[in-house]
Amino acid sequence: MPTSPLPAAPAASPEVVEIERALTRITYLSTRARQHERLMALAGVPLDRAAVALLRQVAESDPLRPGELAHRLGVEASHVTRTVQQLQKSGYVTRVPDPDDGRAQRIQLTDAGRRAVARVREAGARGMQLALADWSPKELRELATLFHRMVDDFLSYAVDDEADQ
């Protein structure tokens, strides 16, 4: 069965094309297995990329149900279930009762999980600090502001796009 074409959109400006290219490059650099292994060694946290992504997501929110975690991470619920089991065995997360539904559970960081996330963030920030050492504080603030704005707009677009479907 043929797939339906994407809705017609105006051609991307040269600036947007360059942003997309830069994001593709940074995504490639940040998701390389060797880069992840180096970061985990520096942080002293022996976790795979999926586990680190889940830990970071849990750290950035109140305890969430596994289905909500899967939605936020853009993965299947079964993937989250396996990763949560791995993190639970390692002592990084625990399951707590859902206050809104006694039959459900939410995933929450343990103290060990909070320490692990802090070490991963610290190791990542140190590497970024070295890479951006020649940038002025003003340039770094501008970049941070623009990155947050871009992510917020991406998230808003994704929500609008899901509502349209």
Rank of each mutant, 00 (worst) to 15 (best):
Q86P: 09
A131N: 06
V80A: 01
D100C: 05
R72N: 07
G113V: 01
V84L: 01
E139C: 06
Q108G: 04
D152P: 07
Q105G: 04
D111T: 09
G127W: 06
E122F: 03
D98M: 10
G67A: 12
A158F: 02
R114A: 03
K138S: 15
A118F: 00
D111E: 11
V75A: 00
E76K: 10
L73M: 13
V80H: 02
A123W: 04
G127Y: 07
L69K: 01
P137E: 02
A116P: 04
T110G: 05
R114T: 05
L69Q: 02
E68I: 08
Y157C: 00
V96K: 05
L73D: 03
I107D: 00
A158D: 06
G91P: 06
E76R: 09
V75H: 00
R72E: 03
E122M: 04
Q129N: 13
G91H: 09
A77L: 14
E122D: 11
L155K: 05
T110F: 01
S90E: 13
L87W: 02
Q88I: 01
V159Y: 09
D153M: 11
E122A: 10
T94K: 11
K89V: 14
L140Q: 11
P99C: 02
G124Q: 09
V80K: 00
S90C: 10
E76V: 10
L146V: 11
P97H: 02
R103N: 10
A116D: 02
R82M: 13
V159R: 13
D98Y: 06
A70P: 14
M150F: 14
A70D: 07
V151H: 06
R121G: 05
G127L: 15
R141E: 15
A123T: 01
D153A: 13
S136E: 08
M150W: 10
Q129H: 14
P137I: 03
Y157I: 03
P137D: 04
Q105I: 06
E122T: 03
E76F: 08
I107W: 04
A70T: 09
V96N: 03
R115F: 03
D134Y: 04
E142P: 01
V159P: 01
R72M: 09
M128T: 14
R141G: 13
R115L: 07
G67R: 08
P99D: 02
P97M: 05
H79S: 13
D153I: 07
K138V: 15
A70I: 05
T145S: 11
Y92A: 05
